[in-house]
Structure formats: structure tokens, C-alpha cells
Amino acid sequence: MPSTPLYSYDSQPSLYSRDFESSITPNTTQRNTLIVAGCYVLVIGILWHVPYLNLIIYPFKLLTVGFHEMSHAFMGVLTCAHIHSIELDPDEGGATRMSGGIPWLTLPAGYLGSSFIGAVLIACGFDTNASKIASLVLAGFFLFTLWWARRNLLTWVLILGMSGLIVLFWFVAGGVALRYLVLFIGVMSCLYVLWDVIDDTIARKVNTSDASAFADICGCCPSQVWGVIWLIIAFAFFAAGIIVGLVAFKESAAQQKQDAKHFLPVPGSSGAPPMAPLSAFLVVCASALALAFNV
């Protein structure tokens, strides 16, 4: 009688390894997206430290601060806190005033939440339709932020300006420009978190930083230790955003363009209904903003 092998799993590890390798290997469109993202990192790094030229990315810096404060507020809501206000100031600072909640969760939510948002936007920046969905979700976040910051004029100017930019880019090249805008905002958000954590907690200790407040509550480690931990998590989010984008969105540029014609198409295009979803969404946003102004 011929003998049968006791084990038949020798090929499985190599099979899984090949599947993972093929999943994260970028195609031509993804390779171009990675190149653009790398250029974003270089340009942001240069503009960040050059006087006067840093005004070019100043609105996006404020936007990432808004993500930071919005993350505090949303975690506060999830832990039953009462949100009193959100404020942004011209010095690229911000504050979220709340009562109640769980400080163990609300304090790290600023850095980690904004880095998570950046990672999600980076992943969505690999695909046109995903970028459209991300921009609509951002619009919803903007409305909540405006509700909490309705007495802060700078926040209104920033978010209304960014909303207008998103709408404008939605119309350019069938939404392709929107994809690169979403990618830029994601890269900017992740880089800002990494730099802010290093600057506030590791390079120099800022007594009013989230890490300092967290260290006071925890009592077991100095703020620099928590800064390093949060930095590692933020970097992991950054890398995860790229990996998810590579694995999830394998369509070529031509396929994305074709799919975008049928998914939330640009008003007036051949695939758009008389009242396109974007137009309807803008009407809803305008109504919500009018209600907020009357509060």
C-alpha cells in the first residue's frame, strides 16, 4: 500500500506570502499616487520651515488642528461629556472645552484621532470614489465642528473655505483633482501630528499639552514617555493608511474614471441625474449652516 504524507501544509505559508506581496505591490496608478504623496511630504517639509512661504499651507495646518479638536469633542460625546465649545486661534492652537467624560480617553483622542483621520484620508486618496465618500464624511464632521465652534469666527472662515475648495475640486477632471486634495489633507494631517507630538512632548515639554495633562492623571510616566507611545501609534496609522490604500484600491486610472461617472457624478455630466447627489448635499449643508447662524 502506498504511503500517504502526514502533512500537506508546506505550501501554505509561501502561498499566503505571495498573496500578501502581490496585494501590496503597487500598480502603475498606485505608484503614481505614492510618488505624489512623497512629493507632498517633501513640499510640506520645505514650506513648513520657510518664512512667508509657510503661509501657503497655513490653512491646512489650521484644518489639522481642527481635526485634533474635533477628535477630542467626538470622544467626549462618546464618553457622555458635555461639549461647551471648540476654538481655533491664528497661532495654530486650539482648545476644546468640555465637562465630564473620561480623560483617559478624551486626552489622547486629539493626537490619535487626527492621525487616524489622516490615515483614512490617505487610504481614500488612492481611489476617486473613495475620495468622494471621504469628502462627504468630512462635510458631516465640519457641520458638527461648526455647531460646537459657532462663536469662533476663524473656525467658520476655515471650514467654509475648505468646503468650497472640496466642492471646486469635485468638479475638476471628474473628481480626480478631489482625490489628490484628499490625499494632501491626509498626508498633512499625519505629518502635523508627528511633528506636534515631537515638538510638544519629546523635543520640549509643554506643560499645557495633552501629554502633560495625561501624565498628571496617570502619574506613572512622564509626558515624554506618552509622547513616544503616541508617536509610534501615529506613525503606525500613517503606514497603515498607505498599506490599506495599496491593498483595497487596485483599479487603474481609467477604471476609476469610468466608475466615477456612475457614482456621485459631477452635476451636468452624462451620468448625472437632474438633481445630482452633490447638489442635494449642498442644499442640506446650506440649510444646516443657516440654522447654526440663527442659534
Rank of each mutant, 00 (worst) to 15 (best):
Y7E: 02
S8W: 08
Y9N: 15
S11W: 13
Q12R: 14
R18N: 14
F20S: 05
E21D: 15
T25M: 07
N27F: 08
T29P: 00
I44S: 01
H49I: 09
H49F: 01
V50F: 04
N54L: 01
P59C: 01
K61F: 12
L63Q: 09
H68Y: 09
H68I: 13
H72E: 07
M75K: 00
M75S: 12
L78C: 11
T79P: 02
T79Y: 12
A81F: 07
H84K: 13
S85A: 13
I86G: 10
D89G: 07
P90H: 05
G93P: 01
T96S: 04
W104N: 01
P108G: 04
A109W: 08
Y111I: 11
L112I: 05
F116C: 13
A119H: 06
I122P: 06
A123F: 11
C124L: 08
G125P: 03
F126N: 06
L138K: 00
F142Q: 02
L143N: 00
W148D: 05
W148G: 07
W148A: 15
A149L: 09
A149H: 04
R151S: 10
L153Q: 06
W156M: 13
V157T: 02
L158T: 04
I159H: 05
L165T: 13
L165M: 15
L165P: 04
F171R: 04
F171P: 02
A173I: 13
G174E: 14
V176I: 15
F184V: 00
M188R: 00
C190F: 00
Y192C: 01
W195N: 09
D196M: 08
D196T: 14
V197E: 03
R204Y: 09
V206F: 09
T208W: 14
S212L: 04
F214M: 07
F214H: 05
V225I: 14
I229A: 14
W230F: 13
W230G: 10
L231G: 03
A239T: 06
G241F: 00
V244F: 10
G245W: 03
G245A: 02
F249N: 01
K250D: 09
E251W: 05
S252M: 11
Q255Y: 11
Q256V: 03
A260C: 12
V266N: 08
V266T: 11
P267S: 11
G268M: 11
G268C: 10
G268R: 14
S269Y: 14
P277V: 10
L291T: 05
L291D: 07
V295C: 04
V295P: 00
